[in-house]
């Protein structure tokens, strides 16, 4: 079990196995933001949205540019494949908050403005979410960067 094995599964889009390996690697290196950046995506794809928000908040509190400066090709970022799947999901009202949270996190890998927009929408639906509220504060103070999308 290792970070490298996690990478092997991440690039093969086997998020469950990548998640397990990254979790173990994170025990050895708890401050590794690259691992957390990938764990956000793994957690989302495994339906562990609260876990994803925890990792998301940890990363952007430390260095949001770790996510913002992602290059879809050079970093083999799967967001371009994943975002359309989540955007096209037919969901009921109670789940809309979660979808907005998910898209808010995913869009940060490629489009800061859209990321903030989705996070703000989710906050209007659930005003008590302190992590999302703090995340918006961090992101809105950043200088705008060029979108990859």
């Amino acid at each position: 079990m290792s970070e490298m094995l996690g990478n092997r599964y991440f690039i093969a889009r086997q998020y469950d196995k990548a998640y397990d390996n990254y979790q173990i690697a994170l025990n050895d290196d708890p401050k590794n933001l690259k691992l957390k950046k990938r764990l956000i995506i793994c957690s989302i794809q495994l339906g562990q949205i609260d876990k994803a928000i925890d990792y998301f908040f940890e990363v952007i509190s430390t260095d949001p540019y770790v996510i913002i400066n992602t290059d879809p090709y050079r970093d083999d970022c799967p967001c371009t494949e994943i975002i359309p799947q989540w955007e096209s999901k037919n969901i009921s009202d109670p789940e809309k908050v979660r979808i907005n949270e998910i898209l808010g996190m995913l869009y940060l890998y490629c489009d800061l403005k859209k990321s903030i927009k989705y996070l703000e929408t989710s906050l209007t639906q659930d005003k008590t979410n302190k992590k999302i509220s703090s995340a918006i504060k961090i992101l809105t103070t950043l200088k705008p960067v060029k979108s990859h999308s």
Partner: peptide, 12 residues
């Protein structure tokens, strides 16, 4: 590369 990565096999 996706199903049966040789390096992945060695790692496992």
């Amino acid at each position: 590369c996706y199903e049966d990565c040789p390096l992945g096999k060695v790692l496992e």
